[in-house]
Amino acid sequence: HAATELTPEQAAALKPYDRIVITGRFNAIGDAVSAVSRRADEEGAASFYVVDTSEFGNSGNWRVVADVYKA
């Protein structure tokens, strides 16, 4: 099962156990969220919340930071 994305309210009520950072070329924010979901799932997380997204220069590469939560 894939890790689910939390709302800001849900994330605020929970304590993350880790923070992950992924970088890559994403065509849309949805693609980045899917990549975070896969990584969170690999780490055994039940859910995640994207904290920050930023573009690296003009290369089209993105850096996505997310907190991950157990259950």
Results as ranks from 00 to 15, higher is better:
46 A>P: 05
10 Q>F: 05
6 L>I: 05
30 G>L: 10
12 A>S: 11
43 E>R: 11
15 K>R: 11
15 K>I: 14
24 G>K: 01
55 E>K: 10
63 R>V: 13
9 E>K: 09
24 G>A: 06
39 R>M: 10
58 N>G: 13
52 D>F: 14
17 Y>S: 04
57 G>P: 08
39 R>S: 04
15 K>Q: 12
52 D>H: 13
21 V>C: 12
28 A>M: 09
4 T>N: 09
59 S>I: 09
16 P>D: 01
23 T>I: 15
26 F>L: 03
68 V>E: 01
13 A>L: 14
45 A>K: 01
7 T>I: 04
21 V>W: 05
23 T>H: 10
8 P>S: 13
18 D>S: 12
68 V>I: 15
25 R>Y: 13
24 G>Y: 03
20 I>A: 00
44 G>W: 05
43 E>H: 14
26 F>G: 02
27 N>R: 11
34 S>A: 15
53 T>F: 15
55 E>P: 11
37 S>N: 08
4 T>H: 13
6 L>M: 06
47 S>Y: 15
21 V>N: 01
21 V>Y: 08
40 A>L: 05
55 E>C: 10
20 I>E: 00
44 G>N: 05
21 V>E: 06
29 I>E: 07
30 G>P: 07
71 A>I: 11
45 A>D: 01
5 E>K: 08
50 V>H: 01
1 H>R: 11
15 K>V: 14
56 F>G: 07
38 R>P: 00
26 F>M: 03
54 S>C: 15
65 V>Y: 05
2 A>N: 12
6 L>W: 02
35 A>M: 08
48 F>K: 01
37 S>V: 09
12 A>I: 09
22 I>P: 00
25 R>G: 04
58 N>P: 12
19 R>E: 00
30 G>Q: 14
26 F>S: 01
20 I>C: 04
1 H>E: 06
69 Y>N: 00
34 S>K: 14
58 N>A: 13
3 A>G: 03
36 V>R: 02
62 W>Y: 10
12 A>F: 07
41 D>T: 15
61 N>K: 10
6 L>Y: 02
9 E>A: 12
7 T>S: 10
11 A>P: 02
30 G>Y: 10
47 S>L: 08
63 R>H: 07
62 W>F: 11
11 A>I: 03
52 D>I: 13
5 E>T: 05
41 D>E: 14
48 F>C: 04
32 A>C: 10
65 V>C: 06
42 E>S: 09
2 A>R: 14
44 G>S: 05
44 G>C: 08
44 G>F: 04
14 L>D: 04
33 V>N: 04
59 S>M: 10
14 L>I: 07
46 A>K: 09
25 R>H: 12
71 A>H: 10
22 I>M: 05
34 S>T: 11
63 R>T: 12
33 V>Q: 05
38 R>S: 07
67 D>W: 12
43 E>I: 15
49 Y>G: 02
17 Y>E: 00
39 R>W: 10
2 A>S: 13
49 Y>T: 03
5 E>Y: 07
5 E>V: 06
11 A>W: 05
23 T>W: 11
16 P>K: 03
63 R>G: 02
27 N>S: 12
70 K>Y: 12
2 A>C: 14
70 K>F: 12
58 N>F: 10
49 Y>S: 04
17 Y>F: 13
59 S>W: 06
36 V>L: 10
33 V>H: 08
29 I>C: 10
62 W>I: 09
39 R>Y: 11
3 A>Y: 03
41 D>R: 15
19 R>K: 03
35 A>P: 02
31 D>M: 07
33 V>T: 07
16 P>A: 07
60 G>Q: 06
55 E>N: 11
10 Q>H: 05
51 V>M: 02
15 K>T: 13
66 A>F: 15
26 F>Q: 01
21 V>L: 04
39 R>T: 05
12 A>W: 07
36 V>I: 12
45 A>Y: 15
55 E>W: 13
53 T>A: 15
24 G>N: 02
23 T>G: 02
6 L>E: 01
42 E>A: 13
36 V>C: 07
55 E>T: 11
8 P>V: 10
59 S>T: 13
59 S>F: 09
59 S>D: 14
19 R>H: 02
54 S>E: 14
61 N>L: 15
9 E>Q: 10
40 A>V: 06
70 K>I: 09
52 D>S: 15
20 I>R: 00
51 V>T: 06
41 D>Q: 15
